[in-house]
Nucleic acid binder design. Structure first.
Length: 226
DNA sequence: AATTGTGTCAACCGCTAGACG
DNA sequence: TCGTCTAGCGGTTGACACAAT
């Protein structure tokens, strides 16, 4: 029988107090990250190691960039999500100062809704007749943040919508119609041409290729999407 | 002013991969 | 090779803030 990660009876849960934050910061400054299991006791915290790790990574780390996402960050998230799916840690790795949790939350609360309002299925980045869709294709063309800036057209269902969503054939073609400035071409990056039908296997392939070709860091985003 | 609905985000939970003995 | 342990990941929850009624 496996031991729980911590003795839950003796641990605090819920929001962190400033004192707890300070203890964690002080401890990590002195001893560095790592060995999360023993850290709470050593730091004098009544928290489980997991909780400490999460608090540090998502909130206390000094290199975190707090605040609103920039347009280019939004663009990048959308593009990487199309490529990798819900691999938040990988996506966050391409956004310096952002955490997987932050990216995930931002996707779920902002970007997902924006895509839906554009008539784009956020799960596969295809135009979808199940979602409201703007009438004017030019409006759709602004699906990335530069065009998403709260100017998403009101949901309008137009005649013949169903024709636009083809299950057969290239879904990338659909994607280009939906997100023309979403440049997923491998020409720039040597990344395999992503298909929006991307299977888990293909996503993993893309992911490993990304990992091999681009070490995480600010420059990689430039390399990726020019 | 009170109540209800909705959105956001920090934190938790359960699972898995990989390291190690 | 197998079992155990830990770090890390993604999904989900719950508290809080704010808007709408």
């Amino acid at each position: 029988m496996r031991k729980p990660c911590c003795d839950k009876q003796d641990t605090n849960k819920g929001a962190w107090s400033k004192q707890e934050d300070q203890k964690l910061i002080d401890y990590i400054r002195k001893h560095g990250e790592g060995c999360w299991r023993t850290l709470p006791q050593a730091a004098g915290l009544l928290r489980c190691g997991k909780s400490c790790r999460l608090r540090w990574i998502n909130y206390l780390r000094p290199d975190l960039k707090r605040g609103n996402f920039a347009e280019d960050e939004e663009d990048l998230i959308i593009k990487l999500h199309a490529l990798l799916g819900n691999r938040w840690s990988l996506i966050a790795g391409r956004l310096p100062g952002r955490t997987d949790n932050e990216v995930k939350n931002y996707w779920n609360s902002h970007l997902r809704r924006k895509l839906i309002n554009m008539g784009i299925d956020p799960n596969n980045h295809r135009l979808s007749h199940n979602f409201p869709r703007p009438r004017d294709p030019c409006t759709v063309a602004t699906a990335t943040s530069s065009g998403l800036n709260n100017h998403a057209s009101p949901p309008v269902k137009s005649v013949g919508d169903n024709d636009q969503t083809s299950d057969a054939g290239s879904c990338l073609d659909d994607n280009r119609r939906a997100l023309p400035d979403l440049n997923l071409d491998v020409a720039i990056t040597n990344i395999p041409q992503p298909s929006l039908d991307t299977t888990e296997e293909e996503k993993k392939h893309n992911e490993s290729k990304l990992s091999r070709e681009f070490e995480p860091g600010p420059s990689s985003t430039l390399l990726l999407f020019g």
